[in-house]
Design a protein around this nucleic acid. Structure first.
Lengths: 134, 134
DNA sequence: CTTGACCCTAGACTTAACTCCAGGGATAGG
DNA sequence: CCTATCCCTGGAGTTAAGTCTAGGGTCAAG
């Protein structure tokens, strides 16, 4: 697969793919004689992962760290991999908790909305978040 | 409370607070005679919310939408509020699912790491994600 | 062997979200 | 009153993450 197909399959521009390569995030598996980049199915999965991680607030640098997190006993001390992974897990757990709270708050708002006949008082997401603090 | 205290309580620069004001995200409750901005406890909660939402991949514009999501039967058609909230809930549910998958994958990696004596084969986050696809 | 769709590089430009700077006013302590 | 520390505005500069442009090669179909 060449760059145009990869890009359109993921809904990004060709330049973005080349930009990710410059950032060492997405390396093509090879080149044609004429210099065209060639991508495999792995690149497709990687690019999709990059895009989803990005939408979750990870920077490209963090995504690169996630992608290069590998257990490979031959070459790397297990402990360093594990340490980095555990740091990332903590970050992600915080994000999960926070997203969960926002989700609860929003659900609370929509439920209060048109739920009954009594006049629902004005209610902001901040108020709803407070109710979840318990 | 004035701007410096607010900023330092949240670990951001004064300029950032003023920038959020320019973006209509964080309006001071008033000004002193001399023109200094005054903030209440609400601003503190708002600023903290903004920062946490930002770390979850929301843009300032999206955060503004979240913050102005209010149920106020007197002034706004309930349905429009509800609609926007429901869109946001869907976004958030997708993010939750994706974060959950990444969390699972990372946990899988650390568990495989140093878990037993058999030589763990090289394992990337992408492989771990695949295992969670079932 | 040319035409059109695709690709290449290098570098300039854009956008969001800050961050800094210049020049100057406000306020509290000594 | 003087000085230090805070704050003000307007505007320029920075960083991350693209996006675009110029000028030019590649390749399959006709």
């Amino acid at each position: 697969m060449q760059i145009g197909e990869l890009a359109s399959k993921c809904g990004v521009r060709i330049d973005t793919v080349r930009y990710y390569e410059k950032q060492k995030l997405l390396i093509p598996s090879g080149r044609t004689e004429g210099g065209y980049r060639i991508y495999s199915g792995v690149a497709l999965r990687e690019l999709r992962f990059i895009l989803r991680a990005k939408s979750l607030g990870f920077t490209l640098k963090e995504i690169q760290e996630l992608l290069t997190l590998k257990i490979d006993r031959e070459n790397q001390p297990c402990s360093s991999v594990k340490e980095l992974a555990e740091t990332k897990i903590k970050d992600i757990e915080e994000k999960l908790a926070e997203l969960g709270r926002i989700h609860q708050a929003l659900t609370g708002i929509t439920e209060a909305c048109c739920g009954g006949e009594e006049p629902a008082t004005a209610c902001s997401i901040l108020d709803a978040l407070d109710k979840e603090d318990s």
